[in-house]
């Protein structure tokens, strides 16, 4: 069982709600994913345009909501977004993300650490989205973050585990859950992340942009379960040379006709 800030999660697959073609498709995919933690964003309302009410149906599913601070470019903006989300959704949980660069959406480590410190002191349960930086992840843990969410590759890129070597160091060193977030493009990549010992993964684009999001959500759920089980079972050692699996006694030669 995965526990973050005292909350137990039966599923180690967390899901985002963005980019789905409509609310019904999103809800079907979330149900198929088995996710018990799903992300949302906060946005200034456009009163002239009607939009799908996703909050009502999401609340009805009973999943835990994890609002994010997407759109924030500074610590100050992120703190403001967190306060908005807390007031509106009644949750102290916040996915802290600050990415001023619109091309690669790289998280700003300086602003993120500053905002994390402030929000933790203010009583928030902070899950920061960060680059796969082991030093930064330790700093975030020190200021009280409930988990760290290092990226596999740029948000929505489906590039997979580009940062694998550094994620391994983060997993090795962390004393809080490590949730690998962003860039996981295929169930096999999510499985690999879990085999490495990640505590959970967060997937959005790979499911939402699939031809069949509901089926893809199920595939990710199975992959995450398989990867976690493999991690617990213990992967075999990787060797540079062949290591025989059958006895090499040479009996075939010994018994061969002359």
């Amino acid at each position: 069982m995965l526990t973050i800030a005292g909350h137990d999660f039966g599923s180690r697959l967390f899901s985002g709600t963005g980019k789905f073609s409509d609310a019904a498709t999103m809800l079907a995919a979330l149900t198929a994913s088995g996710s018990e933690l799903v992300t949302l964003a906060m946005k200034r309302v456009d009163l002239a345009r009607a939009s799908d009410d996703i909050l009502g149906p999401l609340r009805a599913t009973g999943v835990k909501l994890l609002p994010n601070t997407a759109g924030a470019r500074t610590a100050k903006e992120a703190i403001f977004a967190a306060e908005l989300a807390r007031d509106m959704l009644g949750t102290h949980w916040i996915k802290l993300e600050i990415h001023p660069d619109p091309k690669y959406l790289m998280p700003d480590p300086i602003e993120t650490l500053g905002a994390a410190r402030h929000l933790c002191e203010a009583g928030f349960v902070v899950l920061p989205y960060v680059h796969a930086d082991p030093v930064l992840c330790r700093r975030l843990e020190e200021v009280g973050c409930a988990a760290v969410m290092p990226l596999a590759s740029p948000i929505g890129s489906n590039q997979g585990l580009v940062s694998e070597a550094f994620l391994k160091i983060i997993i090795e060193q962390a004393n809080v859950p490590v949730v690998i977030d962003a860039g996981l493009g295929a169930p096999s990549q999510a499985c690999r992340a879990m085999e490495m010992g990640a505590d959970a993964v967060l997937v959005n684009t790979a499911i939402a942009s699939s031809r069949n999001p509901e089926a893809m959500a199920r595939c990710f759920a199975e992959a995450v379960r398989a990867g976690r089980s493999a991690y617990l079972a213990g992967l075999g050692q990787v060797n540079a040379t062949a290591v025989n699996t059958s006895p090499l006694t040479g009996f075939l030669q010994a018994g061969a006709p002359a």
Binding site: K19, A41, M42
Partner: peptide
């Protein structure tokens, strides 16, 4: 006066 709402996001 500004109103903010929760919307889909990752």
């Amino acid at each position: 006066l500004e109103l903010f709402s929760a919307v889909a996001g990752g």
